[in-house]
Structure formats: structure tokens, C-alpha cells
Amino acid sequence: MTKQPNPFLHRQMLHDTWATGKLIERCRKLAPDQLELTTPGTYGTIRATLQHIVSADEGYLVRLTGTPLHAMPFRQTDPATLDDIAAHLEHVKDAVERLFSGPPLDAERILTDTPLRPAGAPRFEMATWAPATQLIYHGVDHRSQIDTILSVHGLETIDMQVWPYAIELGASRQVE
């Protein structure tokens, strides 16, 4: 993967799905009522926030690839278990691989629409860098909120920064 185009973004998206996957696994140890915990100033409950991260990821990737990831969009309002969210995270991972398997992404290319736009809704035009950057920003933002919720309620948090991911890959290491 060393000579792939868009190397920073590709690695960011791989880190992003790694971090969300780790967080879902962490949250599997919570009781159902703990998944409904929240704290003021955050998006909502732990479960709703995880669903929001993954459904938004799908939305950004549909816009970036120009292709639906599956027949029915995964909406924030759909009733979803952690298994459902994890299943959709796999769609996200597949879409990330598809996104980077083609020609290099041109950051400035204008995306004129998304297949997910509801009929009659306004059309947005945007440079490719906007949804790509927002995907990364959005995931960090909301995982941070879940981390705060866990801490506020005295529950164990996990380290989802780039450092542990890089150490896992041998991309950051201490000289012996």
C-alpha cells in the first residue's frame, strides 16, 4: 500500500473504520441499558451515536463513489442493534476499498449529486475533499463523545487514536 494514491486519506479511512470497529466491540460488553446512556452536550445515547457514525459514513461514501452501497439506505431512524451497526460497518469498509481501488481521487473534482438525495430535496454540489474530510472529522467527533459518555458513567474507555493503530501496523515503534 506504500505507493497507492491518496495515501493519507486511505490510511485515515482505514483508521476510522478500525476505530469504530474497536468501539463497537468495546460496547458489546455493555448491558442494554448502558448502551442507552448519554450525557449533556453530546449527540445522544451510545447506541444512537454509533448508528449515526456508520449511517453517515455510508452517506459520505455513496456521494464519493456515486453508487449506493446496498438496496435500502441505512438511516439514523432505523431500529438497529450493535450487530446491525457492525454489519453496516462492513459495507463501509468495502466501499472504502472500492473508493481507493480506482484512479486517484482528485480533491478538487466537483461532485454534483448523490444517489441518496430524496425526491424534491435540494441538490448540493461540492468538491471531493469536502465529504472525504467530513467523513474523518465526523467519526472522530462522535467517537470522542462516546468516550466522554463512558467516562462520565465510570465505564472503561479505549484508546482509538492513530498511535495504537500505527503501533499495531509497525508504523510507529520505539528504537530498542
Binding site: P7, F8, R11, Q12, H15, T39, G41, T42, I136, Y137, V140, D141, H142, R143, S144, Q145, T148, Q161, V162, W163, A166, A171, S172, R173, Q174, V175
Partner: peptide, 25 residues
């Protein structure tokens, strides 16, 4: 430490978003 460049710049972006989210909270 031996650090690959992408780690530093991706962590830069991650770290800022993480802590700005905390200030938002």
C-alpha cells in the same frame, strides 16, 4: 521513536477533532 510520516499528520487531524469535540461537549 521511529514514526512514519502518515502517522503524524493523520494523528494531527485526529487529535484536534477529538479535543474540539470535548470542548463542544
Amino acid at each position: 521513536l521511529l514514526i512514519t510520516s502518515w502517522v503524524l499528520l493523520n494523528q494531527f487531524v485526529h487529535h484536534g477533532s477529538d479535543h474540539r469535540a470535548q470542548i463542544g461537549t
